[in-house]
Design a protein around this nucleic acid. Sequence first.
RNA 1: CCGAUCAUGCCGGA
Length: 279
Amino acid sequence: ATLRLIIDNLCNEGQVNAALSLFQEMIDRGFKPKIVTYKKLIHGLCIFGQCKTALTLFEEMLEKSISVDVRTFNVLVDALCKDQRTDEAFQLFELMLQQGKKPDVITYNTLIHGLCMSDQLNNAIKLFENMISLGVLPNADTYSSLIDAICKKGMVEHGEELLETVITKGAKPNIYTHNALIEGYCLQGKLERAARVFDTMVGRGHEPDIFSYTILINGYCKAKRLDDAVHLLKIMNSTGLKPDTLTYNSLIDGLHKDGRVFAAQELFKDMQDCGQSPN
RNA sequence: CCGAUCAUGCCGGA
């Protein structure tokens, strides 16, 4: 029990390797590891990019016919997706089904996002339809991932359409969903539309976050509407929301490319006065 | 019952 506690804590502190060797020692001494210990280790390993070792542990669990829960499957599926190994993620997904585990909304979200990230939007949409037909209700995360991918492909209108559709079905878009749309319009240079989504979001009761502002500010910068960008920064400041390095980077870059070198330098000073260090 | 299981922003390089 003591060893187990130590391993748990090491995982939480990011010392997975230490945890792993303790785990080995535990087995060598003839202790039987608890299932939670496996789970913690797999999770810890995935977070710190040691997907391979995590999979080894996972296989060990299978060999010992320890039942792997949905949550642990999800952790592994996510790690594989983040590693651009969607094929293997889907193999795990299949395995999950074989083991009689029901993939939940998080499993689907993870896979959908993985597909979007590996430029397989069509497959993502198929999976989305699939989950619905299997009775797994998509949530705001699901829509956000999809809408974001659609917008990044330059199809904001489709993104907004999808949003309208799901709203009529009773889904509630959240700040991620709106931010995705705002970015979509910015990418198309449709700043008025972007600003409108921003306002709609506020109207729906979602306070814009640092992402919302940075996305829109960046949009104005890219559209060479530097005055609007600077104005929005002022508004942002007045709400008490602190622009971070990325927000300033957008503006400084925009000002530079617009030949407003002096203003850029001023802003660079402001940024440091506000405690944001350049990256 | 509990647990860091999923989603959004800048520039540049190759």
